[in-house]
Design a protein around this nucleic acid. Structure first.
Lengths: 169, 169
DNA sequence: TGTAATTTGGTATGGTTCATAACAATTATC
DNA sequence: GATAATTGTTATGAACCATACCAAATTACA
């Protein structure tokens, strides 16, 4: 049971707005919000993705697209379900993502001879070239700035903690 | 210029799928993806929000709704624009968010007597009571588990780094 | 003072992401 | 060989995000 700030009863009738705007232009108090990890986490994540998109603008790759290319390069010959699953993407939503990359000739879907239901995914030469350029952009412009901001040790510790949360929480 | 893995030319004709599925059921290699902060950040953030929703299920509050209640409690008498701005929510999208909370009688919009364009936002008694319960749930079930997982020192360091990225990156 | 510019809450709208159900083709199970 | 499960896919709707625009109110300023 919480008690109203109103000094006297005032049982659900006319209520006065508080404080005749004494602190009109003051910055708001985040309060406990700054101790809420989820909140800071989300805001930080948005900033990081924003910067990623900026750095990747010349190649026009979103974080999700980049992650697909990278994962394919490290795991050639996998099918859509396997790639989508390890990225946490639902199969139906993965289709249009692949369509976009395939229409740009960055990868190909190929029917597997062993299981004619599944599509084996492979990077094209153009896909590999684009991925190489993308990796350089990420390393030199994006990740480098993060490391500079946090310091190498903190950056590494941060990576570890994120992995821990993603895996064990 | 990247060179195809194919040993001989094969100038864009029929291409063989690789490896007759030798590593069929093996776990995929994340590769450089695990060094990409944005990737781990996003996956961790999703996990954290997921758990937040679970813990908050009895009160039916989303992270965004909780942040609004908390911010209002710490900054009574502010208008919609101010609250929305500090939360990074666009004014148009803030309207329906407030509608939902107001229809549950957790807060009220009140025309300001000083500027009759703006709505002064205030928690209702029910809003304050709900917020108090919500804070307890977050602290005891949600945040406590995170602290346990990471350790108090790491948890604190993590909060600091997230704030740094959100502010300075 | 009166008119233009700005601000506030709101509507409408479209884009992107995310989640579920269903389906045909193919493969696995028994 | 009938049934069940899997793969890629379509369709669809919810949730979230962004932009343009509007009326009412306030502010700026000529």
């Amino acid at each position: 049971m919480t008690v109203s700030k109103a000094p006297n009863g005032d049982p659900r009738g006319h209520v006065e707005p508080p404080d005749l705007d004494e602190d009109a232009g003051a910055a708001l108090q985040l309060g406990e919000l700054s101790e809420l990890l989820g909140y800071s986490l989300k805001r930080a994540q948005l900033k990081v993705f924003e910067d990623f998109l900026r750095c990747m603008a010349p190649l026009q790759l979103t974080p999700a697209q980049f992650s697909v290319l990278l994962l394919l390069d490290n795991n050639p010959g996998r099918n859509q379900t396997e790639i989508a699953n390890t990225l946490g993407i639902l199969r139906p939503n993965f289709v249009s993502l692949l369509d976009a990359l395939e229409s740009r000739d960055l990868l190909t879907r190929m029917r597997s001879p062993h299981d004619r239901r599944s599509h084996v995914l492979m990077l094209t030469d153009k896909g590999r070239a684009t991925l190489a350029r993308a990796k350089k952009l990420v390393a030199t412009r994006h990740e480098a700035r993060l490391i500079e901001l946090l310091g190498p040790a903190n950056h590494k510790a941060l990576l570890g903690m994120m992995a821990t949360i993603a895996r064990d929480f």
